[in-house]
């Protein structure tokens, strides 16, 4: 019990923040991207789909390495960023959000794309024939019909960001309160042979992930199947 109270829970809080912000960013970016992938007839569709899926197959260290290079003070993204804001992106929370967004992209885009494809174009056509603008029809017809896809996307995106390690280590390093997330903290504890703390944090992550997934599957089961 004393261990629990004496523990530094900062990494857990930071992890939740990172996962939450990442999911919000991913929904904002992933929705139009998934919509485009679901309905475009462009030839670019296949290469874009492949790019979106890359984080699934690349070792996180590869992704992390490229991101580190790009976001460093002299990198193509980090350089201009530093000129604007005065600090580079690497080893910052913002940098972590960008890295996590790319890393978790397929986990959000793929369920959304599948849901939009299942809804199809017809309900949108009906809505627009009923005087709804494109955006109105999207929010009042296509999104509610793709609700299950959204639930999956949010959960997978959140859970996947929680468990991130390699990319974070490469891009964020290990700065307490800024980039030291749960997985890094656990690694740290193990390195310094603090097995008790490692146990507590690991168990916390395990239970948390299990709870989230259980709640989501329970909700999802109760949602009516809409698309199909």
């Amino acid at each position: 019990m004393t261990t629990l109270l004496a523990m530094d829970w900062g990494p857990l809080w930071l992890t939740m923040q990172l996962a939450g912000v990442t999911v919000v960013v991913l929904l904002a970016l992933g929705t139009p991207l998934a919509w485009w992938l679901a309905f475009t007839k462009s030839r670019m569709r296949t290469p874009v789909e492949a790019v979106v899926a890359l984080p699934l197959v690349l070792p996180p260290t590869v992704l992390g390495f490229y991101l580190l290079t790009a976001m460093g003070p002299h990198g193509p993204v980090g350089g201009p960023w530093k000129a604007f804001t005065g600090s580079a992106l690497s080893f910052t929370f913002t940098g972590l959000v960008i890295a996590s967004t790319l890393y978790s992209l397929p986990f959000v885009v793929q369920p959304l794309q599948g849901a939009f494809e299942a809804v199809g174009t017809k309900p949108m056509e009906v809505a627009r024939s009923l005087r709804a603008s494109r955006l109105d029809a999207f929010f009042t017809v296509a999104s509610p019909m793709a609700l299950r896809g959204y639930v999956s996307a949010i959960v997978l995106g959140f859970a996947h960001t929680l468990g991130e390690f390699g990319v974070v280590l490469m891009v964020g390093g290990n700065i307490p309160g800024v980039t030291k997330v749960l997985s890094i903290a656990i690694y740290d504890h193990v390195e310094s042979l603090e097995y008790t703390q490692a146990h507590v944090l690991s168990a916390a992550l395990l239970v948390l992930s299990f709870l989230i997934l259980t709640i989501v599957y329970a909700i999802n089961r109760r949602l009516p199947v809409r698309a199909a």
Partner: peptide
Amino acid sequence: VVFQEPLLFPH
């Protein structure tokens, strides 16, 4: 427009 299928909004 009345489409070939009723296409009611399921939600």
